[in-house]
Design a binder for these strands. Structure first.
Length: 260
DNA sequence: ATGGCTGCGGATCGCAGA
């Protein structure tokens, strides 16, 4: 089963290029971020016509996540637990039934956190603490799961073309990387690094300053896998070429192939 | 050498993103 994550930076702006990528890549499940749409305005029919079940958790103008799945989705849950006052739509989870077992899939759009320090950075770190708590709870349930999406975290220097320019940025500050490390220390596996080593692998290139043409990218879209899910991992790739197509998002899809 | 953008709402700019 092929499961992808893709920050599309606005469903209205990607109304043609997203279906084109789906037809090309043929993922079974897609976790979308930054749909920038309320649920009522999300064009479900475009995806239902292609055989996908569609579950959204949107809001006006900003953020918003969704799941597309060719397999039935069960027990859909919206919003990251831990703060009832958090109105930002950044988390959705559901259970996908595979051939042999079920997999809990969590789609996330982690806060950017800039400028740092400041209230937005505090929100990012608090959100990551809630994410850690959710991961711990899922581990305790002993059901296989993955958490994937736009983490807005550059894990290591090799994940940026120019790491020195990111040192003080919320995506690469020590506090952010420490919170990321805490997730890994729970026993989660980062899918891409389980299979591919070395620099030069990116999932985001800024629209500005010719970042794509210069390959000035960063790797911030990730899959974290529970131990049982990590045993299912067969492949993990970044669809880099998507960034060079017509009217691209600033992110590209990342996907895993899981045997379950 | 420097710096360059895009999307959204309800507007013809301000904010947000990373």
């Amino acid at each position: 089963m092929k499961i992808a994550t893709f920050n599309i930076n606005g469903i209205k702006a990607r109304i043609e290029s997203l279906p084109a990528w789906l037809d090309d890549a043929q993922p079974d499940v897609v976790l979308l971020q930054e749909i920038k749409s309320i649920d009522e305005n999300f064009p479900k029919e475009i995806f239902e016509d292609r055989g996908y079940n569609v579950e959204t958790h949107g809001q006006k103008s900003f953020n918003g996540v969704a799941i597309l799945s060719k397999h039935p989705l069960e027990d859909v849950s919206r919003g990251l637990p831990g703060d009832d006052d958090d109105a930002q739509a950044r988390w959705i989870e559901a259970t996908v039934i595979g051939q042999r077992e079920a997999l809990r899939i969590c789609g996330l759009y982690l806060p950017n956190g800039n400028p740092a320090p400041g209230p937005k950075f505090d929100y990012k770190l608090a959100w990551m603490a809630r994410l850690e708590a959710r991961a711990s709870a899922l581990l305790a349930e002993e059901t296989p799961f993955l958490m994937a999406g736009d983490y807005n975290i550059i894990p290591q220097a090799e994940d940026a073309a120019n790491p020195d320019s990111w040192r003080e940025d919320a995506l690469f500050r020590l506090e952010s990387r420490t919170a990321w490390r805490r997730l890994l220390n729970l026993g989660l596996t980062e899918a891409f690094r389980a299979r591919t080593q070395g620099p030069g692998h990116y999932s985001f290139w800024d629209y500005q300053a010719g970042a794509w043409n210069r390959n000035n990218g960063i790797r911030i879209d990730h899959f974290l896998l529970s131990p049982a899910c990590a045993d299912m991992l067969r492949d993990c790739q970044i669809d880099r070429d998507v960034r060079g197509r017509d009217k691209p998002s600033d992110h590209v899809p990342v996907w895993v192939e899981l045997d379950f």
